[in-house]
């Protein structure tokens, strides 16, 4: 078991392992999305208050969940990378960053589209929206720092420290924004109460959440494979691989 785990840490072995896994995950992802979207968009009843416009929740909420999940996962990769110097963590975190940033952007965009019919405006300085926006900035900062430092090793070590500082700060930022919002809450916005969600809506939501997770793993593995090829392009096994593909 441990032997297998150690081998998984080597980029060469991981490349093959991920390559074998990606088609299966992609298939599972398509099935989950099909089932989740069908249940969510067709089967689930429309909301008595919001009509059909609430259905964006099946994209909005999973992407918001994923945006936080990916950042914490990247911070865990950073900690593992700093402590045990596992090469793979740099690859996985680097490959995760654009995906996490996209999830955050998706959560912000769908929230804004949802807000237009519900609140009558594209953007309100709601506590959750604001936290999400700051999370988006943190992702962009990570990507900017990593691209600014030419040496990969240095870039990754600097970026992993930034990730750890960021993950310590996220709860502080979150609660301060919450507090700020309760002080400033504008009177025009009626915060709609979320009643306990009905089972016919909850099941598609959970399926969509799993689908998003599988989607993330699929894209992460494919991106990590590309990243491995790029980083290891001077090694023999990559050159052998390229040669055998061409012939």
């Amino acid at each position: 078991m441990w032997d297998w785990f150690h081998r998984l840490g080597s980029p060469k072995y991981f490349y093959g392992f991920a390559g074998a896994l990606v088609p299966w995950l992609a298939g599972l992802c398509v099935i989950l999305f099909a089932v989740g979207l069908y249940l969510g968009l067709v089967i689930a009843p429309s909301d008595y208050q919001q009509g059909d416009s609430y259905r964006i929740i099946f994209v909005h909420v999973p992407s918001a969940w994923m945006s936080m999940f990916v950042y914490v996962l990247m911070a865990i990769f950073a900690a593992i990378g700093l402590i045990w110097r596992v090469k793979l963590t740099a690859i996985l975190a680097t490959a995760s960053a654009p995906i996490g940033a996209s999830f955050t952007f998706l959560a912000l965009a769908t929230g804004s589209i949802w807000g237009k019919p519900m609140w009558g405006t594209w953007w309100v300085w709601d506590a959750r929206l604001t936290s999400e926006l700051i999370l988006f900035f943190l992702y962009l900062g990570f990507i900017a720092l990593q691209t600014a430092i030419p040496d990969r090793q240095t870039a990754w070590r600097a970026a992993s420290i930034l990730l750890l500082v960021g993950v310590v700060n996220i709860p502080i930022i979150h609660y301060s924004v919450d507090w700020w919002y309760t002080l400033h809450q504008p009177a025009t916005i009626t915060k709609f109460d979320t009643p306990s969600i009905h089972l016919s809506m909850l099941i598609p939501l959970l399926i969509m959440a799993v689908a998003f997770k599988v989607f993330y793993i699929t894209v992460l593995l494919s991106r990590a494979r590309a990243e491995i090829l790029d980083r290891e392009r001077k090694t023999h096994w990559v050159q052998d691989l390229v040669r055998s593909e061409q012939i």
Binding site: G141, I149, A158, I173, W180
Partner: peptide
């Protein structure tokens, strides 16, 4: 410290640190 090796890292520095300063600003 993170951007010290980056030439003209001033803008990058603000990009990294400003989001972390938000709680101070709020309180």
């Amino acid at each position: 410290a993170l951007v010290v090796s980056v030439k003209r890292g001033g803008v990058l520095l603000s990009l990294l640190v400003l989001p972390l300063c938000i709680p101070v600003l709020i309180f």
